[in-house]
C-alpha cells in the first residue's frame, strides 16, 4: 500500500511539457530521492505533489484519499510538508516565531514548550531569540527543516536540502534524516549524488518530464539509460 500514489500527471507551460505523464509512488517510511538533469521537471513534479502548481491531468492520492484538487495549504494539513529549495524562512521574525508558526499549525497546546522541543531537534535552541535573517546559512537551512518537521508531517519533501552546506553540516543532516524514518516518509530532491546514494532507499530518475528509471541506488547506478542521459555515461 503506497502512502502517495500519482497517476498520469501532466503539466505543460505554454508549449513546454514540464511533466508529461508521470506515475509516481512513495512507500510509507521510505527515503526516496528524485534526481535528474536540470530542466528534467523535478521542481514541477514536487510542485504538483505539494499543490503549489495545479495539475492539468492525472490524479494524486495520499493515504488513500484523492487530493488532486486540494489547495496547497489543505495538503499541508493532510500531512504533506514542503521545505523550500531557496531558504525561505521569515528573516524579520525570530527563530522562535518561525518555528512557532509551524508548531501552532499542528495544534500544540503548550506553544513555548513544543516550539523549544522542535528547535532542540535540530540543535537551534540557543538561537530562539535571534532574528532568523541573522542566522548563518547552514542554520537557516536547519531552521527550514525544523519548520517542516514541526508540522508533524507524514511526508516531508526536502528540495535541495544540502545545497550550500559545509561537509560537516552534511553529515549532521544525514543523521537527522535517518532519524526521521520510518515515522516520516522523506522525498528528497538532491543534486549531491553522494548524499543520494548514501541516504535513499529508492531513486526515481526524471528526464524531459518523464520517468526514465526507478530502483535501488545500486540498480540506478548500473542502469544504462540513466548513465547515458544523466551520469554522463
Amino acid at each position: 500500500m503506497s502512502l502517495l500514489e500519482a497517476r498520469g500527471l501532466v503539466r505543460h507551460f505554454g508549449g513546454l511539457r514540464a511533466i508529461d505523464g508521470v506515475d509516481f509512488d512513495l512507500a510509507p517510511g521510505e527515503i526516496h530521492a528524485l534526481i535528474g538533469p536540470n530542466g528534467a521537471g523535478k521542481s514541477t513534479l514536487v510542485g504538483l505533489l505539494s499543490g503549489r502548481i495545479p495539475a492539468q491531468e492525472g490524479t494524486i492520492r495520499f493515504d488513500g484519499r484523492d487530493i488532486t484538487r486540494l489547495p496547497a495549504h489543505a495538503r499541508v494539513r493532510c500531512g504533506i510538508a514542503y521545505a523550500f529549495q531557496i531558504t525561505s524562512v521569515f528573516p524579520r521574525l525570530t527563530t522562535f516565531d518561525n518555528v512557532a508558526l509551524a508548531v501552532q499549525r499542528a495544534g500544540a497546546r503548550n506553544l513555548a514548550a513544543a516550539t523549544g522541543a522542535a528547535l532542540a531537534r535540530v540543535g537551534l535552541e540557543a538561537e530562539a531569540d535571534r532574528m532568523a535573517g541573522a542566522l548563518s546559512y547552514g542554520h537557516q537551512r536547519l531552521l527550514e527543516i525544523a519548520m517542516g518537521l514541526a508540522l508533524e508531517p507524514r511526508l516531508l519533501i526536502l528540495d535541495e536540502p544540502t545545497q550550500g552546506l559545509a561537509a560537516g553540516e552534511i553529515e549532521g543532516f544525514k543523521t537527522l534524516v535517518r532519524g526521521l524514518v520510518p515515522r516520516v516518509t522523506v522525498l528528497l530532491i538532491e543534486h549531491n549524488m553522494e548524499v543520494v546514494m548514501d541516504l535513499a532507499e529508492r531513486i526515481t530518475v526524471l528526464n524531459n518530464g518523464r520517468v526514465l528509471a526507478q530502483g535501488t541506488p545500486a540498480g540506478i547506478r548500473a542502469d544504462r539509460a540513466v548513465q547515458a542521459a544523466y551520469l554522463g555515461g
Binding site: S50, A72, H73, V76, R77, F84, L101, R105
Partner: peptide, 8 residues
C-alpha cells in the same frame, strides 16, 4: 511561505 505552512 505561510501557505506552505498549512495556512489558508
Amino acid at each position: 511561505r505561510t501557505r506552505m505552512l498549512g495556512y489558508d
